[in-house]
């Protein structure tokens, strides 16, 4: 076995038959650990790199396990026939894959070398030299742009956005394909102006044709409790369908193919 297949990493879930994060039927590998702390995050158990305990429905379970690339690939391989039929493949999500710069590129490489399509959901928050390690093995970069105003970005995610925006330009230049994704969070970025600014930026990148707007949902709120944390957005209602449609029109008017949800 080639050495890189023994690279170890930390994941907290593998989800098969995922149909909203990249084309076709996909298997999503959720990596543990993230640089951002977005208040709306629906996978709060993904944020810390440390292995944690989470209590859900009265049962405590361990979140996070260390695995090798080969072990993950064994699971990913199991749905190959469905990838072949649907044009699907493997998607890395998290957490933030850029936070595991040895493991994640090795995993992408393993998939590519065995002919499996790859995608990655990522904030793009890392030094560009790190990101460059991933790009050769990546068919699709699904990149989050959450806000164009750095202060507001920092207030809701704990990090400013300069590095992200800078990286977006480079990724647009170097990646095989880039799609911009924006979670639509009421009180944060759900105004038509805010979405328009993001769409304009996405368009200005030159190679981006598509932008997804993902309506805020509360499905992860129980997990905060399960981790002994407070969910700070409990007062927020998900955006209405009508409002999402309005935002979608704005995205389209900027010359992008838009879609609601992944």
């Amino acid at each position: 076995m080639e050495e890189y297949l023994n690279t170890k990493g930390r994941i907290f879930d593998i989800q098969r038959f995922s149909v909203h994060d990249g084309p076709g039927i996909r298997t999503i590998v959720f990596l543990k650990g993230c640089y951002l702390r977005c208040r709306w995050c629906c996978n709060p158990e993904s944020q810390q790199y440390d292995i944690q305990q989470m209590t859900m429905g009265g049962k405590t379970k361990t979140v996070g396990r260390d695995v090798t690339v080969a072990e993950v690939m064994e699971e990913v391989e199991r749905d190959r026939v469905y990838y072949d039929r649907s044009g699907g493949g493997m998607t890395l999500s998290g957490g933030e894959s850029l936070a595991q710069p040895e493991f994640a590129p090795a995993l992408l490489r393993a998939a590519k070398e065995s002919g499996i399509n790859t995608a990655m959901e990522s904030t793009g928050f890392a030094r560009y030299e790190i990101i460059q390690r991933y790009l050769p093995y990546l068919d699709l970069y699904l990149m989050d742009i959450k806000h164009m105003n750095s202060e507001k970005h920092k207030a809701f995610t704990t990090q400013p956005n300069e590095l992200i925006l800078e990286n977006a330009k480079k990724i647009a230049r170097d990646a095989k394909k880039l799609i911009i994704r924006t979670p639509v969070i009421p009180t944060f970025n759900d105004s038509p102006e805010e979405i328009r600014d993001i769409a304009r930026f996405a368009k200005s990148l030159g190679t981006v044709e598509e932008m997804h707007i993902l309506p805020y949902h509360r499905l992860g709120s129980d997990k905060y409790q399960g981790l002994g944390r407070e969910y700070s957005l409990s007062h927020i209602e998900p955006p209405s369908k009508e409002h999402m449609n309005r935002l979608l029109e704005i995205v389209k008017s900027e010359g992008l193919r838009g879609q609601i949800g992944g």
Binding site: F17, V19, G24, I25, D79, V81, Y82, D84, R85, S86, G88
Partner: peptide, 22 residues
């Protein structure tokens, strides 16, 4: 919702085809 939209139909057909390949 698993079959929503054109993409949902495509994925569904792929699931059937995949199971039948097996």
């Amino acid at each position: 919702t698993a079959l929503a939209g054109q993409q949902g139909l495509e994925n569904f057909v792929s699931l059937v085809r995949g199971y039948f390949d097996k």
